[in-house]
Design a protein around this nucleic acid. Structure first.
Lengths: 122, 122
DNA sequence: ACCCAAATCAGTAATGATTACTATTTTATT
DNA sequence: AATAAAATAGTAATCATTACTGATTTGGGT
């Protein structure tokens, strides 16, 4: 079903080594330093696949871009409206079991985005 | 700064009278029943303006569309991966004051999306 | 009421992130 | 080595959203 590819490995490696929450294009530019022939479509395809299999997290914020996160454990994302930075934060979240009890909704994963102004932009 | 327009009024009215979380295009089609000459650009412009002034909420989920919500009070959005529905849910959220204390981040508003499978699609 | 500047509008064209497609190459298995 | 499935590079197409333009509407002052 899923074969090894050095392109996918490189994409994961780039994502593993940043604490920003890059876009597909940012990752593309970064991977090109190692694999100059890689194509943007390959980056998109692998990110979608990794996201679908739960190995990485896909994150939609109000800037219109899809962002990716190597950290899949539940945590909050602070998005600065000025500089666009996305900062990780620990934040206690009510257990999701209530959702299945009350609404019959089976939760799979959770995205928590807080919009505001970051330390540097104040 | 901000003048009255019947178009903006109609857009707000459509949004007020639905419990779905419509896209700009859905709202456009709906408002056209009342104001057939309205243009899609007008819908987008007003939604952006209302969202920026905090009168409505803009919501980005993994379907690539921007959704809008008349309810601005903090609550969770359950997004069904199968049918694409967005369902409102009450969910206790840790007070955001900690963010400013710990990270110097000034929170303004909060979007909480839970991905999963809804009751009907199970 | 009338005037004027700012705001808004309808209609259309442009943008650009993402997806789809195709012919070629790589991977894993026998 | 032979084969089929999976992945790739490169390019073209899609389509939600934004930008632009010239006409219309709004609201405050005279």
């Amino acid at each position: 079903m899923k074969n090894y590819s050095k392109q996918r490995e490189a994409i994961l490696e780039v994502l593993r080594c940043t604490d920003t929450h890059p876009t597909a294009n940012w990752i593309y530019e970064k991977v090109r330093e190692t694999i100059p022939s890689i194509s943007l479509g390959t980056v998109y395809r692998n990110l979608a696949q990794l996201s679908q299999s739960g190995e990485i997290l896909s994150l939609h914020v109000a800037d219109g871009f899809e962002h990716f996160d190597f950290v899949t454990a539940p945590h909050a994302h602070l998005h600065c409206k000025k500089c666009g930075a996305i900062i990780d934060a620990k934040l206690d979240i009510e257990p999701l079991s209530k959702l299945s009890n009350d609404l019959g909704f089976t939760p799979q994963n959770t995205i928590y985005v807080v919009y505001g102004i970051c330390k540097n932009c104040k």
